[in-house]
Design a protein around this nucleic acid. Structure first.
Lengths: 346, 346
DNA sequence: TTGAAAGCGATACCAT
DNA sequence: ATGGTATCGCTTTCAA
């Protein structure tokens, strides 16, 4: 077993209190003693038991990250930002995946009331419409920050992007590329960000002449199923000539469906998608994207969370942080047929 | 604050021992009492303090996952497998990113000796050549399992793939596609998997006639720098006509470099890469890959780790698990010029 | 500057 | 079947 305070103290002929204080560099301990203590601690590889200390201090120096999935470039980049901040603050990160399953989100939320963590960063599942579990979690007083997939009605900090505007702009972009009939692909009807993106789409559709009908397609969690759904969509009597994918993976499914049906993207069908895909410029054809500042969002979310954790009781903090996404037009929405020249934009 | 055992006990007019046992469904507690206890616990939303329990039981029900980076499809899929098993076993997962920085790996290894976790899953950094910190960590007796980027000389369980064979096959594949001069791209000269892949490459190079020279290019951690390195490689007097990228991100950098230089992949240069990119079949041209069973590797690593954690002192466990990668040839190594027909293979 | 001792919350041994 | 109590390892108040 690892060495503990008591053993250190015994070896040094000191009390545990003195050793503890020495290791915390307390000013009420002589330099002399500190040196001796540190030397032995170093020599024996002493590591304080974090559970004993957490129990005593009611502080775990740990945060929870609750996200729907991990094989997703957005979350992956966000984690980089989160971990960056957590590491500099000396915090540990527990990761929980809900796999878009509301029941898992509920179970995790319930568990987190135990005090295992000092704060929680969360992006809710696509199924989360009933939010009793989140309200209950919020009420425990554990600092809670939502990012991207936020829960609007909980009065805590939220980091999101200009989703309405992005939805509007993406649709407008397709319109300007010559589309007459644009489909909107989503995975959820309840998510607040989904609704905002959709509203942007709807408003653009009603604003630009020639757009008479909305085509809203709600997909599933299965990529295979989604490819089939999109195939059917494209084999419709009156198929769309533009697709706005509100989620990266739906754009990938579109590409697969089009390849299967020999539909030439950009020529017969234009596609734009929310995406953080590093290979977007390299696809055939390169994919036009709305890219969220994922890393910055994760970073900001973590920063705000630590602000709240370290807050004095009556301090206040920023509740609604909106970062901006960037639209990058590429060949998938080009007005001319894609030529053979290479894609250079990163 | 959350309610604790003592308060439950007081409310129920029972001792804490009884309440604790009731909640653990001990056979020595009457059904009657169990019901009362559970009812109140439920009503008050009692959640046991995990730190108190960990302190007492010397068990944290937590494992650590230490990986070099997260924006990497291999690790992302592996995490899915790991989390899958951890969740069914009721374990929590702490995630630590080293960002390929040996110093961070050392700091994390040192910290993990504290007993914060019951076991560790690790994939070492590309810089890890001195392994004192890992040996020292191993010696503490905390169950440790390496996956993918294993540390050979530590006698614990390791999950890897048939890297030598894959390296050989990839090189052979390029040779059979007509390449005469094949470059090997890597990010590390010390990683055991890197060495094995390289040895496979070397052996194939020396075996197939026409191959006279090895071209080994060691890249950095920066994608921008790597693109420059590859550009230089291609602008060489005698540039390669085939590239074997031992890491996914290097293949992506190759595509960028070729686009920049107007080099037509598959025609002027053939590329094959280790990769778990979901968009490999959609790239221009579709990328030939050696794909590791990332999800299964994560799953297997976690399973073995829990086996070790739950082991009786003298039990033994499998030390060297090798799963197989799959080579999928696509247009980037096709012998004919890529045509316009779509990529259909997933 | 240092030490003694209480206590964080749950568990488990020893009683009854 | 239930209760009393020591204990896990560390922090912190109070005393010296």
């Amino acid at each position: 077993m690892a060495v503990n305070l008591k053993q250190l103290a015994a070896e040094l002929q000191l009390s545990t209190s003195t050793v503890s204080r020495a290791l915390h560099d307390s000013h009420e301990i002589s330099e002399e003693t500190k040196k001796r203590v540190r030397a032995l601690a170093e020599k024996l590889g002493y590591q304080p038991n974090p559970y004993a200390s957490s129990l005593r201090k009611h502080r775990s120096k740990t945060i929870a990250l609750v996200i729907p999935e991990i094989d997703n470039n957005f979350f992956t980049l966000a984690i980089n930002g989160i971990e960056d901040i957590a590491q500099t603050k000396g915090y540990h990160v527990l990761i929980y995946l809900t796999h878009e399953d509301l029941q898992k989100e509920i179970a995790i939320s319930t568990h987190l009331k135990s005090g295992r963590v000092d704060g929680i960063l969360m992006s809710v599942t696509s199924e989360t419409s009933n939010i009793d579990h989140l309200e209950s979690l919020y009420k425990t007083g554990i600092p809670l920050v939502f990012f991207d997939r936020v829960c609007e009605s909980i009065p805590t900090a939220k980091i999101s992007t200009n989703d309405y505007e992005s939805g509007y702009n993406a649709t407008k972009h397709l319109f300007e590329a010559g589309c007459k009939r644009i489909a909107y692909l989503q995975i959820s009807e309840t998510l607040s960000i989904s609704k905002k993106r959709l509203q942007g789409y709807k408003d653009a559709v009603s604003e630009f002449e020639g757009f008479t009908e909305e085509m809203i397609v709600t997909c599933s969690n299965s990529d295979e199923l989604n490819v089939e759904t999109i195939k059917k969509l494209m084999q419709h009597d009156n198929p769309p000539d533009g697709i706005f994918a509100s989620i990266e993976k739906l754009a990938v499914s579109c590409y697969y469906a089009c390849n299967f049906l020999n539909i030439v993207i950009s020529d017969q069908l234009k596609i734009i998608s929310f995406s953080n895909l590093s290979t977007a410029p390299l696809l055939a054809p390169s994919l036009s994207t709305i890219t969220q500042p994922a890393f910055e969002m994760g970073k900001k979310a973590a920063e705000i969370l630590f602000d709240i954790i370290e807050l004095k009781p009556n301090d206040d903090f920023e509740k609604n942080i909106i970062l901006k996404s960037t639209l990058v037009g590429r060949k998938s929405t080009a007005t001319k047929k894609p030529d053979v020249s290479p894609a250079n934009s990163y």
